[in-house]
């Protein structure tokens, strides 16, 4: 079974992001960029499947400019067999990304498609779901465990009420949550080996001519500063303060 893993190049989770003073966006000048952590978990899962024999090929894909080749090479160093860059200098919104990914899926014919549940820059949590819907195939999101059973999979999902187990037919889309696995460290020699693995580039226009920008970002602002708290001497004081603010 071929597994396609879609990864996104995002601001590293350690970076202290700042909103640009004019509110036009987040300042990403000179900041460290990494594979979206949930996507890394997706890739790790695919690699473990190949090691267990349930998958035979892992292809890692990313949409973006040439900078995202850095993340694709990391994916290859982790152990992916091939990489594909969907070349575009546009920032793709979830629907556009889903359409591009669908076009690639139709070419590649994978048995399983894995993505992170959401990207840590925009936190949309939409691409995997939209992709499954456009593809007309099952989806299991926020996966904490995936067990492949031939032509179907048992996916344990983390939901608000606890854990839910879905039995889905393959091929399908599964998006990953934090507890699925811990991604491996890259061994130094594998970085060198990754340089020789195939990395193909396909232009976005070759995959889809849809241009979905139905969302327009109005403005960015940092969260409001928390105002200083005050200490009260006793319960009576607390009640008094709450009453003063019309809360009691």
């Amino acid at each position: 079974m071929k597994v396609l893993v879609f990864i996104k190049r995002v601001v590293d989770y350690n970076v202290r992001v700042k909103v640009r003073p004019d509110g036009s966006g987040v300042d990403t000048g000179g900041v460290k960029m990494s594979i979206n952590p949930f996507d890394e978990i997706a890739l790790e899962e695919a690699l473990q499947m190949r090691e267990a024999g349930t998958a035979d090929e892992v292809v890692v894909v990313s949409a973006g400019g040439n900078e995202c080749q850095q993340q694709l090479r990391t994916g290859l160093a982790m152990g992916a067999d091939r990489a594909i860059q969907i070349d575009t200098d546009k920032t793709l919104q979830p629907l556009s990304a889903a359409r591009a990914f669908l076009a690639l899926i139709e070419q590649q014919q994978p048995g399983l498609v894995l993505l992170g549940k959401q990207a840590i820059d925009d936190d949309n949590n939409q691409t995997g779901q939209m992709l499954a819907a456009l593809w007309g195939r099952p989806q299991a999101t926020n996966a904490a465990e995936i067990v492949i059973n031939g032509n179907s999979a048992l996916v344990t999902r983390e939901v608000d009420a606890g854990l839910e187990v879905l039995d889905i037919d393959l091929p399908a889309v599964v998006t990953t949550d934090l507890r699925l696995n811990t991604p491996r460290f890259v061994k130094l020699p594998d970085i060198m080996k990754a340089k020789k693995k195939p990395l193909d580039v396909v232009a976005l226009g070759e995959l889809t001519s849809h241009d979905d920008t139905n969302l327009q970002i109005g403005q960015w602002s940092p969260p409001a500063q928390r105002s200083k708290g005050i200490m009260v001497d006793d319960v009576a004081g607390l009640v008094g303060e709450l009453k003063n603010r019309g809360l009691l």
Partner: peptide, 8 residues
């Protein structure tokens, strides 16, 4: 740990 990688 599970993620152990020996340094080369």
């Amino acid at each position: 740990k599970d993620t152990y990688v020996e340094g080369i």
